[in-house]
Design a protein around this nucleic acid. Structure first.
Lengths: 345, 345
DNA sequence: TTGAAAGCGATACCAG
DNA sequence: CTGGTATCGCTTTCAA
């Protein structure tokens, strides 16, 4: 059933039926009712492609998930972000078009999306410190919102980010206040803006309590489970292993946890582990006995927020003057028992 | 730059340019070369929406992610499945359209997708035992492939599944051969086909070694982290806690692990845990010291396979007579130290 | 081997 | 308030 058939079956023109369906004011109430009833009866809904062609609006947003060739598992963060975003899109009638890409054909994908006009805007994930995709998208004239920030670029593009610096600062101070002194940070690569900020927060937190971080306890590499495992082994093999570790991602923490198991070391007892974007729901459910967590909850909200900014940008592109279209979310800090006791030393 | 402009710039008709670009044989070699060169030079790529409208093919596949309202985290399995599927789609030129939906508007989404013609086919995830979406999609005439199987329905629809029964049977036998006798199964709800099969495999494995499962050690509920936590607490509180546990999902295992930590029980030492769809990459990286894992690796392959079947179904709908378009993948069984020692009892 | 013209299914302008 | 018609960008007969 298409518009033509529907119009014919009603003895009306396509024009009138279209107007009735799209809520134009100049349609007679009686006519509108008839049209709506018929549409419902025939289970009519307009062909998206035709509509998109006619209006020039695709009613779809592109999400690009980068998947480094070295990555074995997909970072669960992407799924949570999208879950959040889709709540917003749903309300505004947008669909999500997903592209999972290797790091090689990065900008081909954006070029394509712009040229093929299949989306009205895109979300850019995990920007690097001087991400060139931002300039590219601007050139292409494709509306976008960045999830995260590119440290080395002027701060003049739309973004949503979690305040990683502050979150890590607070987590660090929390550990120090528990009595920890030798604290390790197992971080992602420093090309990633958030890795840089997480480390900055960590260092700040130490400084705020008059401590200097031991460079040997600052580890960083590709955020994989394998790396987490290797890092934990390295740390445990030291003559003076840290009493607490701050892990920068779920994926890294997976590997660290396993390495601890292998070594017979009990996390949360023998050594404290704070993992940044993990385990929210448990803490919620568990109630009182909670620990620090942050990103995992914030990520969903970040998705929601980013989607709002993007939809706004697409639908009211000229308000740019007034509103900044940027948002820095504060991560929750939840604290409790599982961090383990203060070290005796 | 659109087809019209491109044709004008070449002094050719749209027809010829279109034919040259789409590899029709009747175009002169020289002409084709000129056209291709110009297209590249102008960075031309055809407007997807117009093409879809003209051809009746959307070149997109719908993936529907169900997100129960009670679910706090998105099951990472979906992301891995999509990562696998997208490898296939990429090769064939399809895009992914994602819908994240609550359990309420289940079939509205499928109806919409069919009516709005925005996708050429869909992947159906996590079927329930007598899933009515299968009949719906058949009615709608929308090509689909199911990831998983609906136990209570005739086995006559296209699907890709992992052989859950066999995987759990083998895992169970493996544990028994290590000396375990009191083994618990923490499973998902029995509306889910795979939960039923996992339990069947577990029971079969016990039977194969002459054991009967203790009903008190068969737990099942919504697959959440909170539930995993509760289940583990229940098990540990027993006078005779199990010496090994089989967890049916990553999410459940998250919670169980945390409960073990809280209780000071070391997984892999004090009590063995086999988790079904977790941790693949670590094992790969770690080499020799591996344990059972399965779905997490298979899921990506399942995504790839499901996508292949679906593309095939869309592009050659009439071969159905010959090929079954069904695939049952065997999950890998990787075995090693982290399962913990055999119990002394 | 090439081109003119008719759709595909909607929207939107211009008349009436 | 309603209808005719051009248009969006491409594919696909049909003719030449």
């Amino acid at each position: 059933m298409n518009l033509k058939d529907l119009a014919a079956s009603l003895g009306l023109s396509q024009t009138t039926v279209s107007r009735a369906l799209n809520g134009y004011p100049e349609v007679a109430q009686a006519t509108r009712q008839r049209v709506l009833a018929a549409a419902r009866a025939h289970n009519y809904s307009p062909n998206t492609r035709a509509k998109a062609l006619a209006t020039g609006r695709a009613m779809a947003i592109g999400h690009v998930i980068p998947l480094a060739t070295s990555t074995e598992l997909v970072n669960p963060v992407f799924a949570d972000f999208i879950a959040g975003a889709s709540e917003t899109y749903m309300r505004h009638g947008y669909d999500i078009v997903l592209s999972v890409i290797g790091d090689d054909d990065e900008d081909r994908v954006y070029r394509d999306m712009a040229a093929k006009r299949m989306v009205d805007g895109v979300i850019l994930q995990s920007p690097t410190t001087d991400d060139r995709r931002i300039a590219l998208l601007r050139d292409l004239g494709l509306p976008f919102v960045v999830h995260g920030r590119a440290t080395d670029l002027p701060d003049d593009y739309p973004y949503v980010d979690v305040n990683n610096r502050r979150a890590f600062k607070r987590a660090t101070e929390f550990l120090i206040d528990l009595g920890h002194r030798r604290i390790a940070l197992v971080n992602g690569r420093s090309q990633l803006g958030y890795a840089v900020r997480r480390q900055a927060g960590f260092v700040e937190g130490m400084a705020a309590r008059g401590l200097t971080p031991d460079p040997d306890l600052l580890l960083a590499d590709e955020m994989t489970e394998g790396y987490g495992h290797a890092a934990m082994r390295t740390l445990l093999a030291r003559p003076d292993p840290p009493t607490a570790v701050l892990a920068a991602s779920t994926i890294i923490a997976f590997g660290m946890r396993r390495a601890a198991d292998d070594a017979g070391v009990r996390l949360g007892r023998d050594i404290s582990l704070i993992t940044y974007d993990d385990d929210l729901s448990y803490f919620r459910n568990g109630g009182a006995e909670a620990v620090f967590t942050a990103l995992r909850s914030s990520v969903r909200m970040a998705g929601r927020r980013a989607a709002e900014l993007l939809v706004d940008l697409i639908e009211r592109p000229h308000d740019a003057a007034g509103l900044p279209r940027q948002d820095l979310l504060e991560a929750e800090l939840i604290v409790g028992r599982s961090t383990g006791p203060a070290p005796s030393a």
